[in-house]
Nucleic acid binder design. Structure first.
Lengths: 180, 180, 180, 180
DNA sequence: CATGAATGAGGGTTCATTCAT
DNA sequence: TATGAATGAACCCTCATTCAT
């Protein structure tokens, strides 16, 4: 059963993604969730805490997702990651936008500093463990490059270009990392 | 001579970079620039207009920078671009942060949509003209990849990782694109 | 056995004394008493009613105290009163502060108007009955002066002066009213 | 000419006196002063600052008042002080109530702690300088007693008793301290 | 007797903007 | 150009109280 607290989180996530954290008022969250202000502050100490809750929850989901497959061979796993990310990127643009919004809003960034770093490290280690089996000596650098490429594509896709060739970019990555 | 208007722009830029656009009040700009509110609104129709002015000005500077060298050979030009960008990235973190802040704040993004796209196109064409001389058939894709790599590195450097191996990443790019 | 209701009263008294009535939230009482909001409102119709209950209870205690001794000679009784009050004043500062807080907060004062007046009359009559046996014609004025002196000392002690010579003041009163 | 800032202070003083500091909303001040909320916060950083401004101003007035006469003989000066205070007490009940409200509201008391102490010391020294010429060895104690008597009378008059014999109390004090 | 989710009015405060000077 | 008093809407948050369980 969906609790009111979950409803608030969902609504807030959606509004933060659409308008940004700073531009989303608590009142707007209440209206959209059909809930009183009092209730929001009954469940969360502050607007900031809502954001923190959302971020934590999404980190958990991300971890579950990235930890999934384990016994496949490296190139298969990279393929899964790439395809998984592009799928999400295309189907859930807002969520990525939300994350980038948070990361580049000095106030929210400061607020989530430790979580952001923790999540990045998690992702990095996950990727590195794959590259270790491909090229042990360069696994760190390769991981950074891999992550930079994906983030860079997301960035270009989400904010700079109209008609970004997202499919071609995906194929390029697949070719580079899985040599089909 | 530095006019009051320039002073306002400078101050605003610095504050926008430090605290984000939404979190910077006009009052704060006035205090920091030692200028009255009336004067700010004499020179700019609104707070938004200040941001637009800043963005336009910084686009100009960027264009001047990227257009500079012209008759060198492609690999030389890529080397110049890479080194120029990394130099800026390391010496002027705040300015990059400011740009990313704007691009991922839905409200400001909408406001500057056309300028952002224009600037991206400008940069893209500039890069493409180089890659055309390296590999004519793939110049578009190569350009997108090149831009994604640089943006992705900037993103990782600026917000995700502590002790990011920025120099190694630069060397990696230089090796990849200029084959020394 | 201490009932939950007593616990609530105790906790509320302490918090009202520490932070004032207006600045003490029902939520704070609940937290401190480890009790739910529902329970508080089960025992008391409103926050105001808690205050009323506390005031009534403390009036009762005060009456019991002042009525105690009866057959001693007047100067002995005055001595007892003075010493009793100073003892309380020094050992239970917060309780006096709480009473003064209530008496000078217009909203609470209005609420407890009748009780405050009743208590004052009670004290006054008690004192007057003593002075009647000392100087029948001036007993009223003497009582008012006696009460004013004690209240004035309490006021100075509790809020105006650092290092108030409370013992000297007590001795002064004892000398004045019991001529030892 | 009366500035808007003065108007705000006046209005706030009156409302704080009538309803107490905590129970007076900034909105109420605005309504009564026919002024926007923005203006209040243009002139004062916070509601607290309004209170501080009022208190400081009233301390100044008090100082000017108590410092006035200097060459009269001690009993004359005491007479002036007593009569001045009783005049004020009777004509300006609210102002006294306001001061007592502040002194016994823990939050406001804390806020004005230093000013309250400063004012008390000022008054004390002023009184002591008079008593020194009457009875040098006991001037301190006499001053404390004098102040306690006056404060105690004010307290009784303002909150405890109906039909308080304020005139008789004044005469009693005059007789005691000026022996007419 | 006991809980705590839920409400909604109102609290203090911020802020972009205007305008008389 | 230049000032800063003045506005009013919106913001985040608190709180006494109710009610289904």
């Amino acid at each position: 059963m969906k609790t009111k607290k979950d409803l608030i989180i969902e609504t807030a996530t959606s509004l933060f993604a659409k308008h940004g954290f700073e531009k989303t008022s608590v009142a707007a969250i209440c209206e959209n969730a059909q809930v009183s202000k009092g209730l929001v502050y009954h469940h969360f100490k502050s607007k900031d805490e809502i954001l923190i809750a959302i971020y934590e929850q999404s980190t958990e989901e991300m971890v579950n997702l990235s930890m999934a497959d384990s016994r496949k061979k490296p190139s298969e796993r990279l393929k899964d990651i790439i395809e998984g990310l592009f799928l999400q990127l295309e189907s859930n643009k807002q969520f990525y936008q939300f994350n980038l919004n948070i990361m580049f809003q000095p106030s929210t960034k400061r607020m989530l500093e430790s979580q952001i770093k923790e999540r990045a490290t998690l992702l990095f280690n996950s990727v590195k463990s794959i590259f270790k089996r491909i090229d042990a000596t360069n696994s760190e650098l390769l991981s950074y490059v891999f992550i930079a490429e994906i983030d860079g594509i997301a960035l270009s896709y989400l904010s700079s270009f109209e008609n970004y060739p997202i499919t071609e970019m995906k194929n390029h990555l697949l070719k580079k990392y899985t040599n089909d």
